[in-house]
């Protein structure tokens, strides 16, 4: 039963913590594939994946969300992300299995980083909803 006002989210683990993306932005959870790298200077991007003939950049958001001690990703959560005027698929390495959940977001305190678009309260756990495009754009300008 989904309460009125609830939305669907994909919950994903990064180490000991979980974060969420709005479910409508997520297109697939992919098994590990070989990330291909080439010289570049954009922070957070670790390379690209080739998925069904398309080139998908890999964005290691864990560096921002939990810091440099993040464990290696086991899967890639592939989500749509608006970069400039274009919608683009972006792969996010996650450290375990993901879960689809419906929840109402709780009010933000105002102290959250700009890339947190909401907070979910699931039992004892409070989970930050990540606005991927804001996180990528903020890091790109650093």
């Amino acid at each position: 039963m989904i309460a009125e006002g609830d939305k669907s989210y994909v919950l994903f683990p990064l180490g000991e913590k979980r974060f969420a993306l709005r479910a409508e932005t997520v297109t697939e959870l992919a098994r590990p594939d070989s990330v291909q790298t080439f010289p570049h200077r954009t922070p957070l991007l670790t390379g690209v994946l080739v998925r069904r003939g398309r080139i998908v950049p890999v964005c290691d958001v864990a560096q921002v969300l939990i810091g440099p001690t993040a464990p290696a990703g086991k899967f890639y959560l592939i989500a749509n992300c608006k970069i400039g005027v274009r919608q683009e698929l972006t792969a996010v390495p996650v450290t375990g299995e993901c879960e689809l959940a419906s929840a109402a977001s709780v009010p933000l305190t105002g102290n959250e980083p700009p890339y947190v678009s909401g907070m979910l309260s699931l039992g004892d756990e409070t989970i930050a909803v990540v606005a991927l495009e804001k996180l990528i754009c903020a890091e790109a300008t650093t």
């Binding site: 291909q36 010289p39 991007l45 080739v50 398309r54 080139i55 998908v56 964005c59 972006t90 790109a140």
Partner: peptide
């Protein structure tokens, strides 16, 4: 020739014309 994904925003935008995929390998 695939366009460099717009997520790449730094100097590499000037370095490359795009990306080619050859036998599954990405070659700038």
């Amino acid at each position: 020739l695939h366009a460099l994904p717009p997520a790449f925003t730094h100097e590499e935008r000037g370095w490359y014309r795009g990306l080619a995929v050859v036998n599954g390998l990405v070659v700038p």
